[in-house]
Every structure is written in C-alpha cells, then in structure tokens.
C-alpha cells in the first residue's frame, strides 16, 4: 500500500450520463509493468486516460473518486496538469510523432519544461532518450529528418523516446503495438522489458500473449468494472473469476 506509485480509490468516470468506469480501485507500484486487458469498450483505455487527466480534453467527461500519485491527489485543484503529465507520460495507439524533425520531436518536452540549460544539455537528453528507446543507432545520422518519414515501429519508438525525454515516473501505453507488425511489436516489447524498473509502466493491450509476456500483474476489465487484478501468471493460468477465464480462453468478448 505505502509503496504505491499510483493509487486509484473508488474511481468512476462518466461521459454525460453514461458511466464508463464503475468504482475501480487499484494500486500500481513503481517497478512493475501492469497490463490492462478486456473486451473493446470495457473502459480500460478510459481508465488509463484518467490517470494523467487526458480525459480533461473531453468536454462532458466527469471523474469521481480519487487518484493519488505518490499520495498527491491528481484531481485536486492544487495539482498542475502540466506537471502531472510531465510526471505521467503517455504513448498512444497510433504512432503520432510531431511533423517536425526527429530531434525536435524528442527535444520538445524538455524544452517546454526548461530541462536543458544549453544546447549541449539538450543534445545529451535527446541522445539519452533515443538510446533508451532503442532508436539511436537507426536515426543518429538523420536527426534532422522529419519524424513522419520513419517506419511505423520506429515512429512508435520515437514517441516512447519523446515520453522518456521529460523523465517521467510513470509511462502509460494505450495499445502501443496495435498498429505495428510482429517484428516492430517484438522490438517494443523488448523495450518495455528494458524500461521496467526505471518507470512504472501501464499498458493497455488487446493481445493476451503480449500481456502475458510483458507484465508482472494484469487487470481484467469488463463493462466498466475491474473484474480481477492479480499476478499475470495467476490470471492466465488460474483465474479466480469465471468471466476472466471465459475471456482469456476466447469464449467471450
């Protein structure tokens, strides 16, 4: 309990009158990878987006309950959204690099937060982020090329580098591999293994093998509720709930 990085308590999310998330509570610790699985429309992406308040941009979304980041209430008026998103980074389903150079893509976050004092500092941050995202060797000779000229898998790793560059504590990944081919997917999964321990990682995925491969704990969502949350090995081999079992064996959802 005390070493929880992110902690959700009785969280419900509404879109207008529709309840998308119903009374979800969970703790995520600082050195694990947590996978969210569940059928389409079960609310796992919605829940992910409440963790760094990306749902604020949706006009009629409303959140109840509390989400604590290191014990601080994320939805408290005193919480600065800009700082929150610097601490809780996000990678999206479709690779979405800025229409700028590779260098500028990675440098954008650090520059708006003022993390680099000199050009040299920035060069170091960019190189470091690209190395950690496993992209440095592929792009070091063409940092001025547009980020959109990269392949899909490279673009997604660029997006991960962009998120890493502001040195977050948590990285949220919303189906990061669903638009990628198997080889690019394997690259991203390797990367998640390498990043584990440095950042708390939450990954939403439709691919159950992927959840089994990359995560230590898995949460199964259905119809806006958290059905089961436990060690990944238990969820996939010995689920407690009947619905979880039906879902992972492909009988349902």
């Amino acid at each position: 309990m005390t070493d929880a990085k992110l902690s959700a308590r009785n969280v419900s999310v509404f879109y207008g009158a529709t309840r998308a998330i119903d009374d979800v509570s969970m703790d995520i610790t600082r050195d694990e990878v947590v996978a969210f699985i569940g059928p389409s429309g079960c609310g796992k992406s919605t829940f992910l987006r409440t963790l760094n308040r990306m749902n604020d941009t949706v006009a009629n979304a409303r959140v109840e309950g509390t989400i604590l980041l290191d014990g601080e209430d994320v939805y408290a008026p005193a919480m600065d959204v800009v700082e929150l998103r610097a601490r809780v980074g996000m990678v999206f389903q479709k690779p979405n690099p800025f229409a700028k150079s590779i260098y500028a893509n990675v440098a954008y976050g650090p520059s708006i937060h003022g993390l680099a004092r000199h050009r040299d500092d920035m060069d170091r941050i960019v190189e470091d982020a690209l190395r950690r995202a496993g992209l440095w060797d592929e792009v070091k000779d063409r940092l001025d090329a547009s980020g959109t000229t990269l392949s899909g898998g490279q673009q997604q790793r660029l997006c991960i580098a962009r998120a890493i560059a502001v040195d977050p504590e948590v990285i949220l990944m919303d189906e990061p591999c669903s638009a990628l081919d198997p080889i690019a997917t394997a690259r991203i999964e390797e990367l998640i293994h390498e990043l584990r321990g440095r950042y708390a990682i939450v990954i939403v995925t439709h691919n159950m093998q992927q959840a089994a491969r990359v995560s230590q704990r898995t949460a199964f969502f259905n119809l806006g509720r958290l059905v089961e949350f436990g060690a990944t090995s238990d969820i996939f081999t010995n689920p407690v709930e009947e619905r979880t079992k039906d879902y992972i064996t492909g009988r349902y959802g």
């Binding site: 760094n52 990306m54 941009t57 800009v82 700082e83 998103r85 610097a86 980074g89 996000m90 999206f92 479709k94 979405n96 690099p97 800025f98 229409a99 954008y108 976050g109 708006i112 937060h113 997006c159 962009r162 998120a163 560059a165 502001v166």
Partner: peptide
C-alpha cells in the same frame, strides 16, 4: 492525435 501528443508531454 497531434494535440494529444503535445498535451501528453505537458
């Protein structure tokens, strides 16, 4: 998606 990307880095 570009807006999301920029918002997500703060």
């Amino acid at each position: 998606s570009i807006r999301d990307a920029a918002l997500a880095v703060g």
